[in-house]
């Protein structure tokens, strides 16, 4: 038992050290924002890769989340004769929780891993050193544009996800299960509030998740040992760390915003 003690202690201190380094890295990133304005074109390019290229998966997943949610709710609510409220419940649960969280998890899997692997490989092939030698700051040119792109892309992706989920819910509820179209929309619009549900739920949460996921992805890419093994390991760690961070942060944000 006592032999295990230092090992566990080691894991704890290692995790703390990672969090600390990650925090310092965030400061470096933020400090580089003014310098990265020169590389606005690069930010746009990254926005294309992390944002626009993730659209398909986000849209398909959003559609199915809305459809399955409506299907489940319809069967539960029909017990109480409250099927007309199912559209409203779909909207609320997607806006407040499922939209930001599922989008962030997908984003971590789709864009976060790509960022980590790309930066890791750039380090492995000396591209980062080459930039430094060409007097181009890799933090301002590589890290910050990807971080900013993630920050901008996440809320937009989340909005698309939510819209698709509502559309999917409408598809199943109204077209398939026969809920009245007017009832579906009126119940939804009566309850969904712009500030508490859309600004606090969709936008604020996804902004926070976007920051966390892209920070972790960039950080892992920059700190991984520049070998193929190190890159593979860092990619896995990006997904694991992002998922934990998203769900933990979701709890904290929900507690604060509600």
């Amino acid at each position: 038992m006592s032999a295990r003690e230092p090992v566990r202690n080691n894991v704890v201190t290692q995790s703390l050290a990672q969090i600390g380094l990650c925090g310092l890295f965030l400061l470096t990133l933020l400090a580089a924002i003014p310098r990265s304005f020169r590389y606005l074109r690069e930010t746009t390019r990254q926005l294309w890769f992390v944002g626009a290229m993730s659209l398909t998966i986000i849209m398909v997943c959003g559609l199915f989340v809305g459809m399955v949610l409506m299907l489940q709710l319809y069967h539960v609510l029909s017990i109480f004769g409250g099927t007309s409220a199912s559209g409203m419940v779909v909207a609320l649960s997607v806006y407040r929780e499922l939209g930001p969280v599922v989008t962030a998890l997908l984003f971590a899997g789709r864009a976060g891993t790509a960022i980590t692997a790309e930066i890791g490989l750039m380090r492995a092939t000396d591209q980062i050193s080459a930039m430094e030698m060409m007097a181009v700051d890799p933090i301002a040119y590589v890290a910050t544009p990807r971080f900013l792109a993630g920050l901008i892309a996440m809320p937009l992706l989340c909005c698309v996800f939510c819209a698709m989920a509502v559309f999917g819910g409408h598809l199943v509820g109204v077209t398939w299960l026969g809920i009245d179209n007017g009832t579906f929309w009126s119940n939804m619009t009566a309850v969904v509030d712009v500030r508490t549900d859309i600004v606090n739920g969709v936008l604020l949460k996804s902004l926070a998740f976007g920051a966390v996921v892209s920070l972790i992805a960039v950080f892992q890419g920059f700190t991984t040992p520049p070998t193929s093994e190190g890159v593979a390991y860092a990619t896995t760690r990006t997904v694991v760390a992002s998922s934990i961070a998203i769900l933990a942060l979701d709890f904290v944000l929900t507690a604060f915003l509600m």
């Binding site: 750039m122 591209q127 050193s129 930039m131």
Partner: peptide
């Protein structure tokens, strides 16, 4: 000049 050229891919 880097050993492995280090061109931006």
């Amino acid at each position: 000049l880097f050993q492995n050229s280090a061109l931006l891919t």
